[in-house]
Simulated assay, not measured.
Amino acid sequence: MAQSENGMWIIGYGSLIFKPPPFYSFRVNGYIEGFIRRFWQSSSDHRGTPESPGRVVTLVSLEDLLVHDKLHHDIHVYELLEHKAIVSVGASVAQSSVSISSVSKADLKVWGCAYYIAPENVEKVKEYLDVREQDGYTTHVVPFVISSISEENEFTDEVISHIPKENGVSYITSSIYIGTVENASFIGPEDVKVTAKKIVESRGPSGENLEYLQKLCESVRGLGAADQYLEELYKLASLYRN
Rank of each mutant, 00 (worst) to 15 (best):
A2P: 00
A2E: 10
Q3F: 00
W9Y: 09
I11E: 10
Y13N: 08
S15K: 14
S15W: 13
F18V: 06
F18D: 11
F18G: 05
K19R: 12
P20C: 01
P20Q: 05
P21F: 01
S25D: 15
F26G: 08
F26N: 10
V28S: 03
I32Y: 10
F35A: 01
I36E: 04
S42G: 13
S44D: 11
D45Q: 08
D45F: 03
R47P: 02
R47W: 14
P50V: 02
G54M: 08
G54Q: 09
V56C: 02
V56I: 14
V56F: 04
V56H: 05
V57K: 05
T58E: 05
T58G: 01
L59C: 04
V60L: 03
S61D: 02
D64H: 06
V67C: 00
D69V: 04
H76L: 14
V77W: 00
V77D: 04
Y78M: 07
E79P: 01
K84D: 08
K84I: 03
S88F: 03
S88N: 13
V89F: 00
G90N: 06
A91E: 15
A91S: 14
S92Y: 13
V93Q: 11
S96R: 14
V98G: 01
S99H: 14
S99E: 15
I100W: 04
A106C: 06
K109D: 04
G112C: 10
A114R: 09
A114G: 09
Y115W: 07
A118Q: 15
P119I: 09
P119E: 09
P119C: 08
Y128S: 02
L129H: 04
R132V: 02
E133M: 04
Q134I: 12
G136K: 07
Y137S: 02
T138D: 11
T139S: 09
H140T: 09
H140M: 05
V141G: 00
V141E: 15
F144E: 09
F144S: 06
I146S: 04
S150A: 07
E151I: 07
E152A: 09
E154Q: 15
T156G: 05
T156P: 04
T156F: 04
E158H: 11
E158C: 07
E158S: 13
I160N: 02
S161F: 02
E166A: 12
N167Q: 15
I172Y: 12
I172F: 11
S174W: 06
S174N: 06
G179L: 08
V181A: 00
E182F: 06
N183R: 15
N183F: 10
N183H: 15
A184G: 09
S185G: 11
F186M: 03
E190D: 04
V192T: 11
V192I: 15
V194P: 00
T195C: 06
K198V: 12
K198Y: 03
I199A: 01
I199Q: 03
V200E: 05
S202H: 15
S202G: 12
S206W: 13
L210V: 15
L210Q: 11
Y212F: 09
Q214F: 01
L216Q: 13
S219I: 05
V220Q: 05
G222Y: 01
L223K: 05
L223Q: 04
A226N: 12
D227T: 10
D227W: 05
Q228F: 02
Y229N: 07
L230G: 09
E231A: 08
Y234F: 13
Y234L: 12
Y234I: 10
A237N: 11
S238M: 13
S238Q: 14
Y240P: 01
